[in-house]
């Protein structure tokens, strides 16, 4: 397993144990940056599709998503603490088990050796994203869960080079990601942290 993938798994896990929304956003940025590096290191930028993918991973996921969410949270004067999973031994054990299951899954599936570490990390990322989504009703945690989920899917796609990747599809995926971010940001701004709309102000 390459160093970048080892760091990726650490970046997946650490924000779950540190109850801070800023760390969660740094975690998302870290995942994006590491995926951008993995893509560039393996394929370089030889086609338009590669370029679009690098923009997706290196710009949108690494910078735009965390910064856009940070600005909403900062504007709301949110306190530093935010648990994306419940802060107890059961949740932490489940998180570690998810990583183990991801690695066992990759070990058992028929795969070329070069892909196995990618699939292990991606499967772990997917299970952790599901854990985050299932653990908290708070809107911020769910937004983080959604983007962790999107990153896990991107890592699965990264595990195998796609010789016929159409640039138009890559652009389409990028646009969908940006619109998802815009909507997530809007809901994060307009819903209470618990997921309800704010009560109408008394006149």
């Amino acid at each position: 397993m390459s160093t970048a993938l080892v760091v990726f798994v650490l970046v997946l896990l650490l924000p779950l144990f540190l109850a801070s929304w800023r760390v969660s956003l740094v975690g998302l940025a870290g995942q994006g940056a590491l995926m951008a590096w993995l893509a560039y290191d393996r394929d370089g930028v030889t086609t338009v599709a590669d370029g679009v993918r690098l923009v997706d991973l290196g710009l949108v996921r690494t910078l735009i998503v965390p910064v856009a969410l940070y600005r909403v949270m900062a504007a709301r004067n949110t306190g530093p603490r935010n648990d994306v999973i419940a802060p107890n031994l059961v949740s932490w054990t489940l998180a570690l088990t998810a990583v183990l299951v991801g690695f066992r899954f990759a070990a058992h599936m028929p795969l070329p050796d070069s892909e196995r570490p990618f699939v292990a990390a991606a499967a772990s990322a997917l299970l952790l994203a599901m854990l985050v989504l299932a653990s908290s009703e708070r809107v911020f945690s769910q937004v983080v869960g959604v983007f962790r989920f999107e990153n896990a899917l991107a890592l699965f796609e990264l595990s195998r080079p796609e010789p016929e990747a159409e640039p138009a599809f890559r652009v389409g995926l990028l646009v969908v990601l940006v619109v998802t971010l815009a909507l997530a940001r809007w809901y994060l701004r307009t819903l209470t942290p618990a997921g309800d709309a704010p009560a109408p102000e008394a006149s």
Partner: peptide, 13 residues
């Protein structure tokens, strides 16, 4: 309908 915003968010997720 304030509740519709939460419903829309959960639909999206």
């Amino acid at each position: 309908l304030p509740g519709s915003r939460g419903a829309a968010w959960r639909y999206l997720v």
